[in-house]
Simulated assay, not measured.
Amino acid sequence: MSDATRSERPLRLAVIGIGKIARDQHLPAIAANPRFTLVAAVSRHATVDGLPNYHDIDDLLAADHALDAVSICTPPVGRASIAMAAIDAGLHVMLEKPPAATLSEIARIDTHASAAGRTLFTTWHSREAAGVAAARSWLADRKVLRMTIDWREDIRRWHPGQDWILDAGGFGVFDPGINALSIATRILPGAWTVDAADLHVPGGRMSPLVADLTMACGDIPVTAGFDFLRQGPQQWDIVVETDAGLLKLREGGSVLEIDGVVTRGADAEYPGLYAAFERLVRSGTSDVDVTPLRLVADAFLLARRHEMPAFSW
């Protein structure tokens, strides 16, 4: 157990990967949490004002900031080596979703963290959306008949110019789609499988812009449609039919509707993640759930691939 864990002083943290998600979500959540002190930032292409900034993790570790932990927000390809270096330096590690580029990578990181006695936290921010916990509780006492997922957004609006998302290992439409899978597997625990998948990949790219999945949780049928080219109103909905009525999680899980009764909660996804990370570090435990990533991997394994017109920004 570290000195920080024993004394419960604020955890000294560095953020690695200063892109849109780090600026929009991680940095504000850290600034609002007195249990963390943001000590440094690492990025190849960006800096954070008021902090020491480093090009890579080797430069960060050489600076000897007496860190306790790192939060890794880089694209998934290449993330494993960063996490391993952090663990080797005795640091606790928090991973932005998806936790790694492959299942074997995250298994290796998990084994390494466990052997070193360091906390590893594979985060799924959408599970912290306001309606998710209540949806899980309501469904626990009911017979679920089927689930439908519609996750449709505009890549040009949310990820402008981020070509890595459409490269090999970039996940394509599953970059947002895995958020839906993280919610679905949270509110409906059980043995999940992918039965069929259709992936639509633009010419000259490696990852899909559109995907349709047929899945099951035990004997419960689940269908999912993911679209990265949605113009107009964006859609992040999960609908669950039960023997006792209809449950809808809308707007990415922030709005819960049960038989027409709507409850809307405040956005607290990333503050919730950092609160959870702090608890894990203090207790000397880890939280490593790869279920959403496994479903995406299965979809790629089973997929019927369809070429669609070339994509440009």
Rank of each mutant, 00 (worst) to 15 (best):
T285V: 09
Y270G: 05
A140I: 01
A191N: 14
R264Y: 04
T37K: 13
G284C: 06
L247S: 07
V261M: 06
I187P: 01
L293F: 01
G170P: 00
E128D: 04
T193E: 05
T37Q: 13
A216N: 08
R156V: 11
V48C: 03
S207D: 08
R250K: 12
S2V: 10
L209S: 01
G252N: 09
V132M: 09
L188K: 08
V77I: 12
A62L: 12
A211L: 02
L27P: 11
Q231E: 10
V15T: 04
V288S: 01
A46T: 05
G90L: 10
G260R: 12
E105F: 08
R44P: 01
L166T: 04
D237Q: 11
F174W: 08
D110M: 01
F300D: 10
N179T: 04
N53W: 14
H45V: 07
L60E: 01
G172W: 13
A266V: 15
A113P: 02
H65E: 14
L11Q: 03
S7F: 07
S312P: 00
A101V: 06
D175P: 00
L103K: 09
D289F: 11
P271D: 06
L213C: 08
G253F: 03
A276R: 12
T185A: 01
L256V: 07
A63N: 09
D163Q: 14
I220W: 00
A133I: 06
C73G: 06
Y274M: 12
A83N: 02
V239I: 15
C217W: 00
P233W: 02
V255L: 08
V240Q: 03
I258V: 15
H159Y: 15
L139P: 04
M94Q: 06
Y54N: 02
S114I: 00
D154S: 13
D88C: 07
H112E: 08
R282W: 15
W124Q: 12
L91F: 13
G252E: 08
A113S: 08
V194T: 09
L38N: 12
L38M: 05
Q162C: 01
D195P: 05
G169S: 09
A113K: 06
F300A: 05
Y54P: 04
L199R: 06
L301M: 03
R282G: 05
E8T: 14
E96P: 02
W164Y: 13
D150K: 10
E153S: 07
A85S: 14
